[in-house]
């Protein structure tokens, strides 16, 4: 059996399925355009607030008369989207596992392997949020991200299976990479939430919340979700950078050397520290903080793609 081949095939298939899921969610939001604004996300928010509306949900426009047929159509497309995402997720898990089996090691040796693993974590995070907390409105951007991520991986970043170079033979490397992938997944979800927050906030301020934006929760609530993602990711990212430093101490005899990759990991960390500070600074919370979070995500991605491909350094293990 050729696991490497199966891995590629399932990953390519996962890209197609994620794209279909994306279309389903696009259709969901498109058909939502004409439907009443009241939706499950909003209802869920109100659960438990028995006596007093906490004000958290108060900014959505009041529900207009529901149209049951259109409502059902929205719901159907949404469910199809989630179902397809589950299938795509299964496929990409199989792809990553097969890749690991083919390589005879954990599949985190190069950029291709890191990307497909990170996408598994991103989609897993999303599916938990969508199914347990009713956050299906993340479906469109997440499936887009997963399709693009895996798509880039199988086309641009692809390298055939090969053993690790000696510098990567270290437990700390594995710890470092897994932590980075999970933190990265949470940063991505948080970043998407921050983008949605800005869009929703603008729409709310203009008093024109329509279509897709009408289906996502109030800006206040998205802000909270974004914060939780970042609050989860930030300590983990701190740990990731520290684990990387420990690994560097073993590999090169210095725990910090201002290698471009290290530098950008720190820059990313500092930007997210800014985000957390901004959230408790008057005049910076809200939109400005969200913008900082998006900047942090941009820095994360630049470190991952840009530094691997453009700048030469000790960490340039892309293998592309």
């Amino acid at each position: 059996m050729n696991y490497e081949y199966y891995s590629s095939v399932t990953l390519v298939t996962s890209v197609v399925v994620y794209m279909l899921a994306m279309f389903a969610h696009a259709a969901e939001w498109a058909s939502a355009r004409d439907v009443a604004v009241e939706n499950s996300a909003r209802r869920r928010e109100l659960v438990g607030v028995r006596s007093v509306d906490a004000g958290a949900a108060g900014t959505d426009p009041p529900p207009s008369a529901p149209d049951p047929a259109a409502g059902q159509r929205v719901e159907m497309f949404g469910r199809i989207g989630v179902a397809l995402t589950v299938i795509g997720f299964g496929l990409s898990v199989v792809g990553v596992v097969a890749r690991g089996v083919a390589a005879g090691r954990a599949p985190w040796g190069n950029m291709f392997e890191f990307t497909i693993s990170a996408m598994v974590f991103v989609v897993a995070t999303y599916l938990v949020l969508a199914i347990r907390s009713g956050m299906r409105w993340l479906g469109l951007p997440i499936t887009l991200l997963a399709a693009v991520g895996n798509g880039l991986a199988v086309t641009v970043f692809y390298v055939a299976v090969a053993p690790l170079v000696p510098a990567l033979h270290s437990v700390w490397f594995v710890i470092h990479i897994v932590a980075a992938a999970i933190a990265g997944a949470a940063f991505n979800v948080g970043g998407i939430a921050s983008i949605l927050y800005l869009m929703k906030k603008r729409a709310e301020d203009r008093g024109a919340v329509r279509g897709y934006l009408a289906r996502v929760p109030s800006s206040k609530r998205i802000d909270l979700i974004a914060y939780r993602c970042h609050a989860f990711a930030f300590p983990l990212w701190t740990f990731t950078v520290a684990a990387g430093a420990v690994w560097a101490e073993y590999a090169w005899g210095r725990y910090w050397g201002w290698d471009p990759k290290e530098t950008w990991a720190l820059v990313t960390w500092v930007i997210y520290a800014c985000y957390l500070h901004a959230r408790s600074t008057a005049g910076w919370k809200g939109s400005r903080a969200a913008a900082i979070a998006i900047l942090g995500l941009a820095s994360f991605w630049f470190n991952f793609v840009g530094i691997n491909l453009l700048v030469s350094g000790l960490h340039s293990y892309a293998g592309v």
């Binding site: 471009p260 530098t263 950008w264 820059v267 930007i271 800014c274 500070h277 901004a278 600074t281 700048v311």
Partner: peptide, 27 residues
């Protein structure tokens, strides 16, 4: 003040960037 901390953190992030793009003596 918190605002200054914020600005300084930003400045730190910005100032660290050129070192990753311009070659460094120490490296």
């Amino acid at each position: 003040s918190m605002r200054t901390a914020l600005v300084l953190l930003f400045a730190l992030a910005l100032a660290a960037i050129p070192g990753s793009l311009v070659p460094q003596h120490s490296i």
